[in-house]
Each structure stands twice: as structure tokens, then as C-alpha cells.
Nucleic acid binder design. Structure first.
Length: 466
RNA sequence: UCCUCAGUAGCUCAGUUGGUCAGAGCACCUGACUGUUAAUCAGGGGGUCCUAGGUUCAAGUCCUAGCUGGGGAGCCA
């Protein structure tokens, strides 16, 4: 019988009814079962959550070959697609030839057919993509990245590549990683003994970006609406299931958007992404629901079907004060809301995503547009059940004098911000934007609870392996 | 960074008051079984009890410090 030369992905076969036809598949062995007459090989090639059941008549194959077909091994299989006699799958491949690409010594291959803890899998991040769980997560991650580009493209936004390396220290979003080519054991010194950054690569101190927003605003004030989608770096010593040192962030920035438009966009955007996941990642979501989170798709549908509650910080504080709930940190107007307060509003009071707006200006960034009350700014935080703040954004202050006054009040280095202030000096306009933490979105969509499990190779304090 | 819990076989864990305490299940190996579904059944091999000190006649067990991981908090997306 003629052997097919073209490889077929398993995702194309598991729902196929091309019975009697020959196919060539290539993938990694998940498990092998059977007896001395017949072997069942569960093969996965990453194209979908499902394994293809390969059936091998033991007598028809070299004994040594089959002995090396173990969990983790990589093989190519030619065979005939037939309806499965067994219960777990609708099709199976009757193998006519098997080629062993790479063995995986069962004594030392870390992955077993048994389930593994997520903590253990983090220690073998180079191999965990081969598990069903991480296959599902990484496919969903891809789908969400694609959907993000699709949404913005379809809505007339332009993808702007803001810099990864920045020499401005005023992004105001936490500690930064320094970028230098100086010899750290013997850096050049100035006459006064300080490190002489004039001799550094960029001639001044440089860092990895903590946000593309400031440059994003420059793009919005020219192209009308832009978004960024790239890696972001925070050198904070944060050790939580919701923080990474390196993560991906989406930051749309829109000219002529006021805060209400900003909220409309954020809600529509998030709902589009969730709907996209439900439509395009159904099998992977079903797996995660079965294994980790029985309410996963219910929760996704709930967010899709309900309008986000919108209320001001002041109203939120009043609800918390009236609630009678006991909080570790007592609520008062002017304080930043603690996790417990946000959770109360989202999970106890409204039981729905909440957009909080108009925060006290003292607890928000300098660039946010000040309200006429003199006390609050047009900030907006989108709070989700289980994961808290998923989006932070605001209308930006477009008035040069007001913005400059705020820069002075906060003692920010105005000379480094000249280019940012120029947008207010020349053709200023109302504009808004927000930042969406990509991995936080993925936490919500996948139902995972630790952010280290929704990025292929997590970077956290004391961990940059792989 | 703070609080808290944990670290024993490849994995998940048990190990009582400090005294036969080196254990189980799974994985792996060998054998059995003509269609399995985390296959099943029988047998076998497998240990720096996280590290360094300390207390004690005696430490997996108690004390101190450190390292690593989980959970909570802060910072934030």
C-alpha cells in the first residue's frame, strides 16, 4: 500500500470520517497500553487537546522498536483511519509503519502518564508544554493574542511598537530593570565619584520599559487610535500568584476618547476576547473545566452576558462603609482600596465585573485628567471576580498647564518629560487609554490561579530559568 | 519585603511522645493477559529524610540560621 508523504495534524483527524484512507501523523507519545498482541499508543502533536489512538499489531512490528515507543518518545506513524472499537475516541489509526524520531528513556523522562502538580511542572518548564494542561493553556494564549490583534485591527487601531529600552524614569509604574554595558565590578566614575553614565551605552542610565503608555500617547495623537502589545518589565519584589517580573501588556490609546468611551471600549474589548475564547477554544476550555475549574465556562458566559457595573470610587467607598463587613483595613475616603475591598465589591456586593472611576488624585498617576472637583481624577479600574484588577486606565490630562502643575507638585523630572508635554503644547486633544495585563486575562479565561502557569517561561524574583 | 505553611523514593504523600522509622500509592523494570482508556494482575529495583550548625545516650522528628516552594498581604497589570 502506498504510504502518504504529507503529514496530517491530529486536530484534522480526531473529528474526521475519512475512514479507510491512509494518513501520516507525527507527534509525541503520551502513553502506551496493551498486551502482547496489540499496543495502543496515545499520540499528541500539540495541534489540539485530543490524542490520536494509534493501534499497532505487535506481531507486525520490530520488538525493539515498540519497546522504545514509551511516554515522551517522538514518532511518525503511517496507518489507516478506522472507526474506533473502544469507548474513549471515535477514530483510531491502524498503524502500518512506525518511525522513531527520538527516544525518551522512561527511567529519567520526568513526565508520567499520571497527573503532575502544577508546582512540579513549573520546575520542568521546558517540558510542561507537552502536558495536556499546558497544551491547552498555550493554545488559548495564542488564540487570545490573535484575537487582540484582530479586535483592534477590525476597529481601526494601529499596532504601535513602543520601545523596550527607555531612558525616561518617569513612567511611574514601579521599580525598573537597569540596562547597561558598563563593567559592574569597576564602573567608570566621575570626578565626584559617581558612576559615569556618560560612558554607558546610551550615554545615560537606561532601563527596561514598565509601560508603553507615554509613547503610546504620542502615537494616538497622530494615528488617532493605537495599541501596544509587548513585554513589560517590573523589578518589584512581588511574590504573588498575580505578578510576574516579565509580562505582556496591551495598551490601547485613543485620541478624542473621554473616560466613558474608554470604559465602553474596555468592556466591549474584554467581552470580545471572552466570546472568542468560547467560540475557538471550546475543547481546551472543556478540558480545563473538567480538570481544574468546574465553573469556568459559566463564569465566562456570565461576564459576557452582563453589563459591567460602573460606579465612582466615592460610591464604592460608601457601599463598603455601609456594608457592615469587617475588613482588616478599615475603609475611608482617600485611601487606596485594598484587595479585600475590591473583592467585596466584585464578589459579594455586585457579583459582577465592576469598573471603578474617579479616584482621589493623590493615589493615581500624574498624567490622569483631573476632575473639576479638584480632588479626583478620571481613572478607571476594571475589577474581575477572582483576579481583581485586570485593567487600569484613565482619561489623560490634556491641559498643558494643569499637567505641568501636577508634574511640579510631584517633583517629577520635567526636563525628561519635554517630549510628552509637547503633545499638550501642540495640537492637544482629549484622549484616553488603558492597560490590560495579558496574563491576568489568561488567568480569567483559563481558570488557572497562578500567573506562572499562563506564561511559557515565567520570570519572577529569584527565577529566570529556561 | 512582611506573615504563614511546607521540603522524606521519579511524582503525590504518611511517618504518633525523640527510641526496628526508611514506608505507601502511582511511575519505572520483569512476567501474565487477544481491544486498552490514568488498562488490569503478580513480582522487583529504587533514599544526601532541603542545606549548615546545635541539643541529646539517641534526631526524618526538637532548636537556630539559610535555601527553595505554596498560600495570604503590600506594590500593580
Amino acid at each position: 500500500m502506498e504510504q502518504p508523504q504529507i503529514r496530517t495534524k491530529i486536530s484534522e483527524l480526531v473529528y474526521s470520517d475519512a475512514f479507510g484512507q491512509n494518513f501520516l501523523v507525527k507527534g509525541w507519545v503520551r502513553t502506551k497500553r496493551g498486551n502482547k498482541h496489540v499496543a495502543f499508543i496515545a499520540l499528541n502533536d500539540g495541534s489540539c487537546i485530543h490524542n490520536l489512538q494509534v493501534v499497532a499489531d505487535v506481531a507486525a512490528f520490530d520488538e525493539e522498536l515498540l519497546r522504545n515507543v514509551t511516554t515522551g518518545a517522538c514518532v511518525a506513524v503511517c496507518g489507516k483511519l478506522v472507526p474506533s472499537q473502544g469507548q474513549g475516541q471515535s477514530v483510531e489509526l491502524q498503524a502500518t509503519s512506525i518511525y522513531l524520531y527520538g527516544k525518551a528513556d522512561p527511567d529519567v523522562y520526568p513526565l508520567q502518564k499520571k497527573g503532575h502538580s502544577l508546582e512540579f511542572l513549573r520546575e520542568i518548564a521546558h517540558l510542561r508544554p507537552r502536558t495536556q494542561t499546558f497544551g491547552a493553556i498555550l493554545r488559548i494564549r495564542h488564540a487570545m493574542a490573535f484575537a487582540i490583534h484582530k479586535y483592534f485591527n477590525d476597529h481601526g487601531f494601529f499596532y504601535l511598537h513602543t520601545p523596550i529600552i527607555t531612558a525616561s524614569d518617569c513612567e511611574g509604574a514601579g521599580a525598573m530593570f537597569q540596562v547597561t554595558t558598563l563593567n559592574l565590578s569597576e564602573p567608570p566614575r566621575t570626578e565626584s565619584g559617581e558612576v559615569d553614565y556618560a560612558q554607558d551605552f546610551f550615554g545615560k542610565p537606561a532601563n527596561l520599559t514598565v509601560s508603553g503608555q507615554l509613547e503610546g500617547e504620542l502615537g494616538a495623537m497622530a494615528l488617532g487610535a493605537i495599541y501596544t502589545f509587548g513585554p513589560t518589565f517590573r523589578a518589584e519584589n512581588s511574590n504573588t500568584p498575580r505578578h510576574l517580573s516579565e509580562f505582556w501588556m496591551i495598551e490601547p490609546e485613543m485620541a478624542f476618547y473621554e473616560i466613558q468611551d474608554n470604559m465602553d471600549l474596555a468592556e466591549d474589548f474584554l467581552k470580545f476576547l471572552i466570546a472568542y475564547a468560547l467560540e475557538h477554544c471550546a475543547d481546551d476550555l472543556a478540558f480545563l473545566e473538567k480538570m481544574y475549574d468546574a465553573e469556568l465556562t459559566d463564569r465566562l458566559r456570565f461576564v459576557l452576558d452582563n453589563r459591567f457595573v460602573r460606579l465612582s470610587y466615592t460610591e464604592g467607598v460608601e457601599i463598603l462603609l455601609r456594608s457592615g463587613a469587617k475588613f482588616e483595613f478599615p475603609v475611608s475616603w482617600g485611601m487606596d482600596l485594598q484587595s479585600e475591598h475590591e473583592r467585596y465589591l466584585v464578589e459579594q456586593h455586585f457579583r459582577c465585573p465592576v469598573i471603578l472611576t474617579d479616584y482621589p488624585k493623590e493615589i493615581k498617576a500624574f498624567y490622569m485628567k483631573q476632575n473639576t472637583d479638584g480632588k479626583t481624577v478620571r481613572a478607571m479600574d476594571v475589577l474581575f471576580p477572582k483576579i481583581g484588577e485586570i485593567i487600569g486606565g484613565s482619561q489623560r490630562e490634556e491641559d498643558l498647564e494643569v499637567l505641568q502643575r501636577r508634574v511640579e507638585e510631584l517633583d517629577l523630572p520635567q526636563k525628561d518629560l519635554w517630549w510628552y508635554l509637547d503633545t499638550r503644547r501642540f495640537g492637544s486633544a482629549p484622549h484616553s487609554g488603558f492597560g490590560l495585563g495579558f496574563e491576568r486575562l489568561l488567568l480569567f479565561v483559563t481558570g488557572m490561579v497562578n500567573i506562572r502557569d499562563v506564561i511559557p517561561f515565567p520570570r519572577t524574583p529569584k527565577n529566570a530559568d529556561f
